[in-house]
């Protein structure tokens, strides 16, 4: 049952690492402008679900459809192009390139998509301003605080104005004040650009920034929208 008007849907996803299944028939759907929290205990397959949805990994079986196109059938190059152009990513840590300055890091997706350096960095700077970290543009990730670095990462995820943002524990390494600020900036920006956000988290207060949550347990995703 694919809800009408969905931007990204998955049905019957199976994925195993070795003998243990990480996903065991998971379903998922999200439409444009929606923020969906993916919750569940550690090791339940949250991240695996996100990676399948984003086309980073291919499910063993089941289908992922993005904007009417079968994502799970696409070759790697096509999926990479999609990730470059239409998706954005925020992770918990280790995502900024240590040698590049903050503005260069934020501009990286645009540069990967083929934009000229000047234009890419101009746009990246706009996002840094919006995320309140324009003052550290020339510093390297090693020289800024965790919260600042995470905002740079969010700026980088948003800089291509993606249609889907995948955030995997985006506040996992931050204190609650910084974490909530980052979540607020992220969801505000996403709503402004009508981007869908797939938010993997185990924190309820972070999940509270979503419109709806999906609980992954034992490799199965349960959409809680209809449960109430």
């Amino acid at each position: 049952m694919i809800p009408a008007g969905s931007l990204l849907t998955a049905t019957g996803l199976h994925k195993s690492y070795g003998p243990t299944p990480a996903l065991d028939g998971a379903d998922f759907s999200i439409h444009a402008g929606e923020v969906v929290a993916v919750m569940g205990p550690s090791g339940s397959g949250k991240s695996t679900l996100l990676q399948c949805l984003a086309g980073i990994i291919r499910p063993d079986s089941g289908t992922v459809t993005y904007d009417g196109r079968p994502l799970s059938e696409m070759p790697d190059a096509e999926r990479s192009a999609l990730r470059r152009g239409e998706f954005g990513f925020v992770f918990q840590f280790g995502q900024l390139v240590p040698e590049l300055t903050c503005v260069e890091n934020a501009a990286l997706p645009l540069r990967l998509a083929g934009l000229k350096r000047k234009e890419a960095e101009r746009r990246a700077l706009e996002w840094l301003e919006r995320l309140e970290v324009a003052d550290i543009r020339g510093k390297r990730p090693g020289e800024v605080s965790g919260g600042q670095g995470q905002r740079v990462a969010v700026a980088r995820a948003l800089v291509t104005t993606p249609r889907v943002i995948f955030a995997d524990e985006p506040t996992g390494a931050l204190d609650s004040l910084n974490g909530e600020r980052v979540m607020q900036l992220l969801t505000d920006a996403a709503r402004d650009t009508r981007a869908a956000v797939v938010l993997v988290t185990h924190e309820a207060r972070v999940a509270a920034y979503s419109d709806r949550e999906v609980v992954v347990r034992d490799g199965k995703a349960r959409d809680m929208a209809g449960a109430v």
Binding site: I56, F87, F89, F91, Q95, L112
Partner: peptide
């Protein structure tokens, strides 16, 4: 992470 970003 870079691969996730769609880096070739």
């Amino acid at each position: 992470v870079l691969v996730a970003f769609g880096t070739r």
